[in-house]
Simulated assay, not measured.
Amino acid sequence: MSQALLSKPQMRGLLAKRLRFHIIGAFVFSLSVVAAYKFGVAEPRKRSYANFYKNYDAVKEFEAMRDAGVFQGVGPKGQ
């Protein structure tokens, strides 16, 4: 009588069933991490670089560094 109350354990296909579940879960998790990185890190970084280079003047920056004495081979303006 006690055997009728207990169900048989699943022996066939158990590994395949668990792998299917975990592969789907890993795929969904990885897609969510990629989306979070793209919209949380990459897009704001692109916007900040675009804003920086929108008004960036390389010649003006070079002259400021030259006047500050950053370069060894280039003296201050007027020498």
Results as ranks from 00 to 15, higher is better:
Lys60Tyr: 07
Val59Met: 06
Phe39Pro: 02
Phe21Pro: 00
Leu31Ala: 04
Val70Thr: 13
Val41Tyr: 07
Met1Glu: 04
Lys38Thr: 05
Phe71Thr: 09
Asn55Val: 08
Ser32Tyr: 01
Met11Phe: 08
Asp57Tyr: 02
Ala26Phe: 11
Gly73Tyr: 12
Tyr49Leu: 15
Arg12Leu: 14
Gln79Ile: 12
Gln10Cys: 02
His22Pro: 00
Pro9Asn: 03
Arg20Lys: 12
Ala16Thr: 08
Asn55Leu: 06
Ser30Thr: 09
Lys17Ile: 07
Leu15Phe: 10
Ala16Gln: 14
Ala35Gln: 02
Gln10Pro: 00
Ser32Gln: 05
Phe21Leu: 13
Gly75Tyr: 11
Ala42Phe: 08
Pro76Asp: 10
Asn55Ser: 14
Lys77Pro: 01
Gly78Pro: 00
Gly13Thr: 05
Val41Gly: 02
Lys8Ser: 07
Tyr53Asn: 08
Val59Pro: 01
Met11Cys: 08
Tyr37Gln: 02
Lys38His: 04
Val34Phe: 01
Met65Glu: 15
Leu15Tyr: 09
Ala26Met: 12
Ala26Asn: 11
Ala68Trp: 06
Lys54Gly: 08
Ala68His: 11
His22Leu: 14
Lys46Trp: 07
Glu43Cys: 00
Ala36Ser: 05
Ser2Thr: 01
Gln79Asn: 12
Gly40Tyr: 03
Val70Leu: 14
Val34Thr: 06
Met65Phe: 14
Lys38Glu: 04
Ser2His: 02
Gly40Ser: 01
His22Met: 13
Pro9Ala: 06
Gly78Trp: 01
Lys38Phe: 05
Gly78Leu: 07
Ala64Thr: 11
Ser32Pro: 00
Gln10Gly: 01
Tyr56Ala: 08
Ser7Pro: 00
Leu14Tyr: 07
Lys77Phe: 12
Gln72Trp: 12
Ser7Gln: 04
Asp67Glu: 15
Gly13Asn: 07
Gly69Ile: 09
Gln10Ile: 11
Leu31Glu: 02
Pro76His: 11
Ala68Asp: 14
Phe27Ala: 15
Arg45Cys: 07
Phe52Trp: 10
Gly25Trp: 07
Gly25Arg: 14
Val34Met: 03
Arg45Thr: 15
Val74Glu: 13
Met1Phe: 01
Asp57Ile: 03
Ala26Cys: 09
Val28Met: 11
Ala36Lys: 06
Met1Ser: 05
Ala36Met: 05
Gly69Cys: 10
Met65Val: 06
Gly40Ile: 00
Met65Leu: 15
